[in-house]
Amino acid sequence: MAQSNVSGRPFRLFRNLNAKIAAIPMILTALVIFVGFSLWTVVYSFTKSGLLPRQDFVGLMQYERLWSNTKWLISIQNLLIFGICMLVFSFVIGFVLACLMDQKIRFEGVFRTILLYPFALSFVVTGVVWQWLLNPDLGIQSVMRGFGWESFAFDPLNNSRIVMFGVVIAALWQGTGFVMVLLLAGLRGIDDEIWKATRIDGIPTWKTYLFVVVPMLRPVMVTTLVIVTAGIVKVYDLVVAQTNGGPGVSSEVPAKYVYDQMFLNQNLGQGFAASTMMLITVAIIIIPWAYLEFGGRKRG
């Protein structure tokens, strides 16, 4: 290994030349579109651009306005509520469902399809469906009252204090099946020998799941975590379809703030500043993950 490295070093750039040439278009796309345009956005977030980009630099003014704006602060707060609830519940529910599926039950395929099905729907459809379900005059509340429970009240979408939980319910309904399937795939990858060994040692099944299987699922968990988290940061269409930020501004989210600033308020600078803050958030999530996934392997 070491020897081939030494002899190959001078020609390293030319090794696998065909593959490298083939990768050039993708590399250019990544550099120009992802890196280049992101940098452009960051640069213009320091300007006072209106409907069209203008090189009228104003320093940190857009950021000052951003962080003193109630709507943005509410957006951040909502994203935290949404993110924490989503992560906790989708993992807990998803894992429990995956374990249940893993019991070699009959008609597993049918159940798996039913639970995964909502994931095939777009967030827009999900949002509209749950807007109806949570509408006090047609949805769950009116059905319960129809059954004779007259005092039943459940209308999160009209209550600014709990509206985000209405959004979380819809997102969980849509996304939990996906988490379940990923974790189930991980569970299927666990060697049967491990199960036999724990059974011989007399360890209860639930303990095996929590203390043996979960640590072994780490790679699947990390991947799922990154996918779910990325989905949380960019949540937009669900909120637009379900509540459109209302009532008032109580269910605003950062991605919607960016869109509203750029296209409704005709204030590109402010939208760029907000999207730069979102980019930083995503970077904070992605960089440690990339380090764990790729950095760790090289060392090993």
């Binding site: 600014s160 009532p247 008032g248």
Partner: peptide, 10 residues
Amino acid sequence: ADLMVQFFNE
């Protein structure tokens, strides 16, 4: 408009 809708809803 954002300010006013906030006022009416809170």
